[in-house]
Lab assay of single mutants.
Amino acid sequence: SLTLTVRGEEAVRRWYKWAQAHNLEVEVETHGDEYVLHIK
């Protein structure tokens, strides 16, 4: 499992696509303009 902090929706989309390509689940938490992604 992997936890990432990114800024901006574009980065979130990029990681989301990456995770889907690897059959992984993604949980997204929003903290202001930062997003915490939990990839499992």
Rank of each mutant, 00 (worst) to 15 (best):
H22P: 00
N23H: 11
Q20Y: 10
K40Q: 09
V36T: 11
V36A: 03
E10G: 08
T30D: 10
D33A: 07
V12L: 15
I39R: 00
Y16R: 14
E9V: 14
L4P: 02
W18V: 02
V36W: 05
Q20T: 12
L37H: 00
R13F: 08
G8K: 03
H31N: 13
S1P: 10
L37W: 01
H22N: 11
K40S: 12
V28P: 01
H31E: 06
E10L: 09
R13D: 09
E10Q: 09
R14H: 08
V6N: 01
G32D: 07
K40F: 14
A19L: 08
V12A: 12
L24H: 04
A19D: 00
R14W: 15
K17E: 14
T30N: 13
S1R: 11
Y35G: 01
K17F: 10
D33N: 10
A21P: 01
H31V: 12
E29I: 11
Y35P: 03
E25P: 05
V12F: 15
L24K: 05
V26Y: 07
W18S: 01
E27Q: 12
H31W: 10
G8M: 03
E27H: 12
I39P: 00
W18D: 00
R13A: 12
K40I: 10
W18N: 01
T3G: 04
K17I: 13
V26K: 00
R7W: 11
W18E: 01
V26F: 14
L37R: 00
E25I: 14
L4G: 02
D33E: 11
E9K: 13
H38C: 10
K17H: 09
R14N: 08
T30V: 15
V28Q: 04
G8P: 01
Y35F: 12
E10H: 09
H38K: 10
L4F: 08
V6S: 02
R7A: 07
R7N: 07
N23R: 07
L37D: 00
E9A: 11
K40G: 09
E27V: 14
Y35L: 05
W15I: 13
G8E: 05
V36C: 08
I39K: 00
N23A: 08
Q20S: 10
V12S: 04
H38Q: 06
T30F: 12
V36P: 00
T5A: 07
K40T: 13
Y35S: 03
R7S: 09
L24R: 06
L37Q: 00
E34H: 15
Y16M: 15
S1F: 12
E27D: 09
V36R: 07
A11I: 07
R14E: 10
A21L: 13
T5H: 14
E25T: 15
Q20R: 12
T3A: 05
I39E: 00
L24E: 01
E10S: 09
E29S: 09
E25A: 10
H38L: 08
G8Y: 04
V36N: 03
N23S: 09
A19V: 05
A21G: 06
E29F: 12
E9S: 09
W18Y: 07
E29H: 09
A19Y: 02
E10N: 08
L4H: 04
V28L: 10
R7F: 12
Y35D: 01
A21D: 13
S1N: 13
A21V: 10
W15V: 10
V12G: 03
N23D: 09
V6A: 03
Y35E: 02
L2V: 08
D33Y: 06
W15R: 01
E29K: 08
A19I: 07
L2S: 04
W15P: 00
I39S: 00
A19M: 03
G32L: 05
L24Q: 03
E9F: 13
Y16C: 14
T30I: 15
W18H: 02
T3D: 05
E10P: 06
L2F: 15
I39A: 01
A19G: 03
H22A: 05
N23I: 03
V12D: 00
K17T: 10
L4N: 02
L37I: 14
E10D: 12
Q20W: 10
L4Q: 03
H38A: 04
E27R: 12
S1Y: 14
T3Y: 05
G32Q: 05
K17Y: 10
R14P: 02
Q20G: 05
E34S: 11
T3S: 09
Q20P: 00
V26A: 03
L37V: 08
T3H: 11
E10W: 08
Q20K: 13
T5N: 07
H22S: 04
N23V: 03
V36K: 06
K40W: 14
K40P: 04
H31T: 08
G8W: 04
I39W: 02
L37Y: 01
G8H: 06
I39Y: 02
Q20L: 14
L37A: 01
N23F: 09
A19T: 02
V6P: 02
L24Y: 14
A11C: 13
W18Q: 01
Y35R: 03
S1V: 15
H31D: 10
D33Q: 09
E34D: 09
T30R: 15
N23M: 08
T5M: 10
D33L: 07
H31F: 12
D33S: 08
E34W: 15
E25K: 11
H38M: 07
H31Y: 12
W18K: 01
L24S: 02
T5G: 03
H38R: 12
E27T: 14
H31Q: 10
E9Q: 11
W18P: 00
E25G: 05
R13W: 09
H22D: 02
D33G: 08
V26M: 15
Y16H: 08
